[in-house]
Amino acid sequence: MASSSLEASRWWEHLQQLDGATDLSQIATAAGRALIVVSETYAHAMRNDLHRLAVTGADTVLIGGAGDVEGILRVPANAALRHALGGTLTSLNTRTAASWLEHCTPGRLISPQGQARWSDWAAQAARPERYARTPVSDETVIAFIKEMKSLHPDSSRTRLLRLFRDKGMACEQKRFADLYTSTIGRR
């Protein structure tokens, strides 16, 4: 996954240069529809292609993305649906897309009935997440990692972060990963 818009743009340009590559508008025109599942960063990189796709007239749903595109139905990422969809925020767009397809009218990507089913479900399923975690120092995080690895040597970094957060302490995922790596190494 690209960590910046510049990296994402380079990735998208590289894909477009591959032999036999087909752009989104050609795919959508041939299929008559397109389901695009993309993060905000990648949506920025694909902006021009999304606009070309929008004018094809193909039924197009954009899950996630960076903003509305005229001619494309957008279903933005909604963290309040994570409880119902499960998983992490990182994979929320993918699980949103799967749920969208479950609510569609069979054989149709977009229909008023399918959109109504989705909207009704999303309104009922939404539960805003609120965390009251306490920010802590790097030293506290490192001490926790060392203690947990000594007690549970086979625990993954992801599992330790979950345990850390379950104790009411705050630590961003990348920060935790960096501290874990500097403490334990890349195992």
Results as ranks from 00 to 15, higher is better:
S119C: 07
G67W: 04
R95I: 02
S9F: 05
R117S: 03
G57M: 10
N78T: 10
D154G: 12
H152D: 10
A31G: 08
L53T: 08
M1T: 14
T22L: 12
H152W: 07
A21N: 12
T140G: 03
T105M: 06
P153H: 08
A80Y: 04
S119Q: 15
L35W: 07
L15D: 05
A45H: 00
P128E: 13
R52W: 01
C171Q: 02
L81E: 07
R127N: 12
W121P: 04
R159W: 02
N93P: 14
T41A: 14
I72N: 02
C104I: 05
M1Y: 05
M46P: 09
A21K: 11
T158A: 15
R133M: 11
Q124I: 03
A116T: 13
R10K: 13
Q16S: 12
M1R: 08
D154S: 15
T29P: 06
S137V: 04
V38C: 13
G114Q: 05
P112I: 14
T90M: 12
V55R: 11
G32R: 08
E147Y: 10
Q16I: 00
E147R: 14
R175E: 08
A126G: 09
S5R: 14
Q115Y: 02
D19G: 14
A79G: 15
W118F: 12
T41K: 12
L160F: 06
M148V: 15
Y131Q: 14
D19Q: 11
L89G: 15
A2G: 13
M148N: 10
S111E: 06
P106K: 01
R165Y: 01
I145F: 01
Y180K: 00
T60V: 11
L35I: 09
T56K: 08
Q26H: 13
A77D: 06
V61A: 10
W100I: 03
T134C: 12
Q124V: 07
L151C: 05
R33L: 02
I63S: 02
A143W: 00
T94G: 14
K146C: 13
A122G: 10
R117D: 05
A30G: 14
A43R: 00
L53V: 08
L73A: 06
E172I: 07
A54L: 11
D154I: 06
L109C: 07
F176Q: 02
S5N: 09
S182Y: 00
I36K: 01
L89W: 05
R133P: 07
D166C: 12
R33H: 12
T158H: 08
A31F: 02
E129F: 08
L18A: 15
A123Q: 15
Q173E: 15
V55K: 14
T29W: 00
Y42D: 10
T96K: 04
R95P: 09
I142K: 01
A79P: 08
G65V: 05
E172V: 11
H152P: 00
T90Q: 15
L6S: 13
S4Q: 11
Q124T: 11
R108S: 14
A84V: 06
S25I: 01
R52D: 04
A97F: 03
L15M: 11
E139T: 12
W118N: 08
S5K: 10
R130P: 00
S156G: 15
T96E: 04
S150F: 03
